[in-house]
């Protein structure tokens, strides 16, 4: 069996950059969650700053994959992996954007008494962080099984989003003067729900990368 050195090097490079990108996105999400829970405005700013690094990593991954396609003529699993790298990197980038959205909510809820809905946001963010980590691991270990496990966590996020929506609607009816906060809660919850969807999409792409079949996870 002949190994294709240049292509193998490109894959190792891609794995490293995707793992780093995921680690940064996960860190941002957990920092945003902590910032919201502890009303730490400084931490929220850090999340915003880290976003530029994550965007830059996405471009590096795209360049690496594009050069490998142009110069190595990959086919079959090699090609599927490079295509997956493009797509998964884009999903991590979106996940990091949603971490920023969560961090931005910190200011809105400064000085607020503890609310059940904020706890739900916190739980969603924690699960989202686990999904990001699981997705990255599934990619770098080329494991469809790990991808399925990571995607399965989306059910929890969806359930919390649904429960939060019901709570916030009740809150709007009871205390119309808090409509602005209610709207922010709904929007932020919606972002975290989207984050779960992005990771699910990434996991579907990883299953295609490994098994060569298109699947819909959590349909």
């Amino acid at each position: 069996m002949t190994e294709r050195t240049r292509l193998s090097e490109a894959f190792a490079d891609l794995d490293g950059k995707l793992a780093l990108m995921a680690a940064k996105a996960e860190e941002s999400l957990l920092k945003a969650q902590h910032a919201l829970a502890t009303q730490d405005a400084g931490l929220a700013k850090e999340v915003k700053r880290a976003d530029a690094e994550i965007d830059a990593l996405q471009l590096e991954i795209e360049d690496l994959a594009a050069v490998a396609i142009a110069t190595q003529q990959p086919v079959a699993r090699d090609l599927r992996m490079l295509v997956a790298a493009f797509k998964v990197a884009a999903d991590f980038e979106r996940a990091a954007d949603h971490a920023v959205h969560l961090a931005k909510a910190t200011a809105t809820f400064a000085g607020q008494p503890r609310m059940r809905s904020l706890d739900r946001l916190s739980a969603m963010a924690e699960t989202g962080a686990k999904m990001i980590r699981g997705t990255a691991e599934a990619f770098t270990r080329r494991s469809a099984e790990l991808a399925r496990q990571a995607a399965a966590m989306d059910d929890f996020i969806d359930g919390e989003h649904k429960a939060l929506t019901a709570e916030v609607l009740a809150m709007m009816r009871e205390r119309p003067e808090e409509a602005e906060k209610a709207a922010k809660l709904l929007r932020t919850s919606g972002y975290l729900e989207r984050l779960g969807d992005h990771m699910t999409n990434a996991c579907e792409d990883i299953v295609f990368m490994v098994e060569g079949v298109h699947v819909e996870l959590n349909a």
Binding site: M1, T2, E3, R4, P74, V75, A76, R77, D78, L79, R80, G212, V213
Partner: peptide
């Protein structure tokens, strides 16, 4: 055949890992 080959030997040959 070039995106999702079914046989491992095809996979190895078309992706230049044969021989």
């Amino acid at each position: 055949l070039f995106v999702t080959p079914r046989d491992e030997r095809t996979e190895r040959y078309i992706s230049g890992r044969f021989g």
